[in-house]
Design a protein around this nucleic acid. Sequence first.
DNA 1: CAATGAACCTGGTTGC
DNA 2: TGCAACCAGGTTCATT
Length: 275
Amino acid sequence: MPELPEVETTIRGLQPIVNSTILSIKIHTPKLRFFIPKNILRKQESVEIKEIKRRGKLILLNLSNEHTIVMHLGMSGRLRLINNNKFQKQRHDHFILRTNQDHCLIFNDVRKFGFIDCGKIEEIYNKKYMVSLGEEALGINLNDKYLFLKISKSAVAIKQILLDQSIIAGIGNIYASEILFNAKISPLLRGKDLSLEECNQLILSTKKILKKAISAGGSTLRDYVSTDGTVGNYQSNFKVYKKDGQKISGKIIKKIVQYGRSTYFCPDLQKKQKI
DNA sequence: CAATGAACCTGGTTGC
DNA sequence: TGCAACCAGGTTCATT
């Protein structure tokens, strides 16, 4: 579930720990997608969390010692932030960070597709997972010309292109379907089939859908919970995702599989060719 | 080189 | 009810 709106909701929920000092870090599961760096904090060092921000689906905790902790939630990862005296270890709690202000930040991930990394800032910014990211989905630099230039020779389906983090950073499988529906563009179109105008529409829809989802506090399939325990409710705004067989404006919603991922769309409202 | 499928891992849901 | 098969928010790697 963690796509851009959920990650954004998460980092907003984490702001209370900015300017607190890290007391301890406990690693219960050494290896997620890859091993968590063991020397994530040297002993006897007083390190403050200076800033928490997002890049694509990455969560970045900038520290006072010129290091950054990076977290990726993968498919099933989530963070919860609670008062230290309320802490009870749950299944799949892999990483626990405590602060001098009694905060307890827990990284929980059932499937372990997420990761936690840490290093000097410049070192982190040279990591592949960082360098390869394209324009921020909500960034000012994401415009019609950028997208058109990137995809105008591509035979890849636009649905897949939206999932490509090296082109646009932040969109995932749910919002890709929702964005294409909003833009009235078929997921089956190839990159090179899109006009500049359609690229523009796609970007407008991207920003609109993601912003709406953020203001709804993220979505939830099953039990996505933001850091303070409140439940995001953007899922009630889904128009097509998981709605195959249902109708919208009298037109049937279909589910197809593209590149091994489910795509939901309305063939009658998302034309393949412009008429 | 691009495109596709499998792999990583666990748990919930579906169908027989 | 039991159990196997399938599916899930993401990304990377190996194979065509």
